[in-house]
Simulated assay, not measured.
Amino acid sequence: MAFSSGSGGGGPMAEINVTPLVDVMLVLLIIFMITAPLLTHKVEIKLPEANLDERPEEPGVPITLAIQDNGQIYWNDDPVNMVALESQLAVEAQKKPQPRVDIRADDTTKYRIIADVVKTAKNVGIAKVGFVATPER
């Protein structure tokens, strides 16, 4: 309880009682002193270093598969059906290094059609299949 010095009436006291503040700060200091050593990592890991002199081979031009909402598939802007797509992807899968396959689809294209194209690419051995989207503005 805060008491005023004998200089006046029973008005409110304008001094701040700092004792609870000091108590809370000391408790927080002790907690941080105990938990800080526990936050250090005990497991030592040797991370690889980057070497900019040697760069991996970049595969050639990526293959772009465009899929319209009606199910029509285009191989680099040339129309193709699923049988021809599978045979062309099988030929591309044999190349070293394999080209990347980028899939562009309309926003109203059924997911089943896109999933069939991705499944076909994976079944013939294409390792990298990606999706192309328009960036948000």
Rank of each mutant, 00 (worst) to 15 (best):
M1K: 10
S4C: 09
S4K: 15
S4T: 08
S4E: 10
G6F: 01
G10P: 06
G11Q: 14
G11D: 12
M13W: 02
E15N: 11
I16T: 14
N17G: 00
P20I: 06
V22K: 08
D23R: 15
M25G: 09
V27N: 06
L28R: 12
L29Y: 06
I30W: 04
I34Q: 01
T35S: 11
L39A: 15
T40F: 12
H41C: 00
I45H: 07
P48W: 02
E49K: 15
A50Q: 10
A50L: 13
L52S: 15
L52T: 15
R55M: 12
P56D: 08
P59L: 07
G60K: 13
V61Q: 13
P62K: 09
W75A: 00
P79Q: 07
P79Y: 00
A84K: 15
A90E: 05
V91W: 00
Q94M: 12
K95S: 02
P97S: 06
D102L: 15
D102N: 15
A105C: 03
A105S: 09
A105N: 09
K110L: 04
A115L: 04
A115F: 03
K119A: 04
T120Y: 02
N123Y: 02
V124F: 00
G130K: 14
F131Y: 07
A133R: 15
A133P: 00
P135H: 08
